[in-house]
Design a protein around this nucleic acid. Structure first.
Length: 256
DNA sequence: TTACCCGCAAC
DNA sequence: CCATAAGTGC
DNA sequence: GTTGCGGGTAATCACTTATGG
């Protein structure tokens, strides 16, 4: 089973740049998209009813802003929950939780802290809410947990090209990084880093400015995290840096 | 966000 | 219909 | 001298909605 996650930075624009063709080539079991920036009624039919999948959308109340969508291949038993049951987060279309036979899949768009750090507290409370929901579902249903999406945080200096000049930028603030430390301490694993330890230059986002993607000046802010016990079922995790269409690249997780 | 320039300290 | 401005991203 | 770091400023790309004519 293969799961993709991709921050598309506007699913309509990304469609024009080949998202649906890429989907048809892959036809993986699951796709998690973030920053769809659209209401379902604004979309072409193929994005609402993709050929081989059922798609669910969690748009933000505010038009053209945020939003996530999860696509599951026809025939795979599953059940969706939109949002966390917390209004301030659900208003912004940040979360879809999908339950499968053996695990829960969280598709998350973690908030941006904003340049002036105004939304850092909001971001931190979203982190906490996701963490609590994951623990709750894990303990209640005894199923594994996969949390993917755009975390908007680089964990360690090797996770971004310019760690020194960004210690005061949201995405690499001590507070944001500490939450990831904590998340690790309570038993969750950053899957890409697990398979590719201590190797720098692996990013999932590059600013459009200054040809940063070509020069690989980027950040690793999109992840798959799972509970530790799930590791034995995981074959690998990849970054698909050759897939264009957004300022993020798709990432994938392969399960047994 | 990165790129660039400036001043200052360290060697 | 096209051009432009403004908000957001980070 | 030159190297390196910190601080400050300048210039930057794209998606979306709304507005104007």
């Amino acid at each position: 089973m293969k799961i993709y996650s991709w921050n598309v930075a506007g699913i309509r624009a990304c469609e024009k740049k080949g998202l649906y063709d890429w989907y048809l080539e892959e036809l993986a079991e699951v796709y998690c998209f973030q920053e769809t920036k659209a209401l379902p009624e604004q979309l072409n039919d193929q994005l609402v009813n993709p050929k081989s999948h059922s798609a669910i959308y969690a748009p933000a109340v505010k038009k053209g802003y945020s939003g996530v969508s999860t696509w599951v291949k026809s025939g795979i038993e599953h059940k969706h929950t939109i949002g966390l049951g917390i209004e301030e987060f659900d208003n912004e279309g940040r979360t879809i939780i999908t339950e499968f036979d053996n695990f829960f899949l969280f598709n998350c768009y973690f908030p941006n802290g904003q340049r002036d750090h105004a939304r850092v507290p909001y971001k931190m409370s979203y982190c906490k809410a996701i963490e609590e929901k994951a623990q709750e579902l894990h303990q209640q249903f005894k199923k594994d947990i996969i949390i993917t999406g755009d975390y908007n945080t680089a964990h360690h200096p090797i996770d971004l090209a310019n760690p020194k000049t960004n210690t005061k930028s949201t995405g690499f603030l001590p507070l944001e990084r500490e939450w990831m430390d904590h998340f690790e301490e309570i038993g969750y694993v950053d899957i890409f880093r697990h398979f590719t330890p201590e190797e720098n230059g692996h990013y999932t986002w590059w600013t459009y400015r200054s040809n940063c993607r070509e020069r690989n000046i980027g950040w690793r802010i999109d992840y798959f995290w799972t509970n530790k016990d799930m590791l034995k079922n995981i074959k690998g995790c990849s970054h698909h840096t050759d897939i264009l269409g957004s300022d993020h690249c798709p990432i994938s997780l392969e399960l047994n």
